[in-house]
Design a protein around this nucleic acid. Structure first.
Lengths: 223, 223
DNA sequence: CTTTTCAAAATTATAGATAATTTTTGATTC
DNA sequence: GAATCAAAAATTATCTATAATTTTGAAAAG
């Protein structure tokens, strides 16, 4: 619950912290978010809490029913797929526009993020590196509205990932990321976009070998 | 400022009315939104007004600077194009998924919307019919998050349209809409999606014959 | 043992009040 | 006349209080 510099208002800080908790699964789907309790925890009144709720609602992380309160949004396989398809469509668009503006320095940083992802010891470290990779190659498109939408979709994606993969992370080599970088280095933005599209659409689609413990969902959840 | 049935909270009603005013250009880009003044107009306290502001912010219709207040978002040609490209990407996705679920009744209703758009006497009537067409053929995709994003982009699109085209509407026959419907009637969802993509991407791109009065922007703004 | 009812407790939504900050305005100086 | 400064006014962000609604839970009825 630390204070980040971009927390200009109390409402922004509360929204950020609650979003983190929802994404990391500390707040379960369907859990009620009681404004007075949260206000007490953050040592504020409930007014900024209610403003934070509106932000979470817009991100799709919470559902508000008038007079009935706010709950952590639930989700199902259909929504995992919906978010994956939206990400595929929007990230492809972003990459096509970013293409011309990508520098060798950016691609090197993206390769480093890929290596860190491959070496990640747990799912949280992998997600952080994965998100950094995607953000690095997409940010140069300079389309703020598009990037904001993609960020929200990444939060939803991360939430699905963490809910499915609480333990038992296995290191894996991300061949897709490497193929994307190779294509970008050759200036083949369209080809890179095509690989990126399949890479992200994979989420929620393909069967996945069941993990030890048997509580694994049989669907790919990385990307 | 009438009370719609879906206005469950005061904040929702304020957000809807302010969004309408911004989209219709009654509130100019950069105009300050003073919470006390709006609260007085709606005969409420400023608490629900602030919550409405958070909703407008999420829709990209307003910009909030902490301690400095909220302003109507400004926009430029780059954002018109950005919104057009996002709409193209997301509407194509929605149409591909809606394809299987489209019934003759829906397509008939969409054709009627197209006819109404062609016959529209002013830009507002045209926009209403156009939005109805897009919504009719996309809603059956049953992807709520995707449809919500498309709705927000349509609001932005309508705003750009109204700002550029305050007067001097000329009737036009929408050949794209008819081609989309023809493809859908033949079950060619991919072909329909391809026409839809070009139809929407047109916005903000192609030169447009200057209108009498000379205050016309030289870019297509319909779609 | 389950269902219904109803009052108590909890919770939401809104209003009213206050502290902190920004903007405006008008006098003053250069 | 333009620039500077400070006090006044306006505005934002937040807190405290209150009314309205929902939820809870225990007693009564079937």
């Amino acid at each position: 619950m630390s204070r980040e510099p971009e927390d200009n208002t109390i409402a922004a800080r509360i929204a950020r912290v609650l979003a983190e908790r929802i994404v990391h699964g500390e707040l379960a789907p369907g859990a009620r978010l009681r404004q007075d309790h949260i206000a007490e925890e953050f040592e504020t009144s409930h007014v900024p809490v209610r403003e934070a709720f509106r932000r979470l609602e817009a991100q799709g992380l919470a559902i508000s029913e008038p007079r009935r309160g706010v709950r952590v949004a639930s989700f199902d396989l259909a929504e995992v797929r919906e978010v994956a398809e939206m990400r595929a469509a929007l990230e492809v668009l972003a990459l096509k526009h970013a293409g011309r503006h990508l520098t060798p320095a950016i691609l090197d940083a993206a390769e480093e993020a890929t290596r860190e992802g491959d070496a990640a010891a747990d799912v949280h470290a992998w997600e952080e590196a994965n998100r950094r990779f995607h953000r690095l190659i997409l940010t140069p498109c300079a389309m703020p509205r598009l990037l904001a939408s993609i960020d929200d979709l990444h939060a939803a994606s991360a939430r699905f990932l963490f809910s499915a993969w609480r333990s038992g992370w296995e290191k894996r080599t991300d061949h897709d990321h490497r193929a994307i970088l190779a294509a970008l280095r050759q200036g083949k933005a369209e080809e890179a976009a095509s690989i990126l599209q399949k890479h992200v659409q994979w989420i929620g689609r393909a069967p996945q070998p069941a993990q030890k413990g048997g509580e694994r969902q049989a669907f790919a959840i990385v990307g």
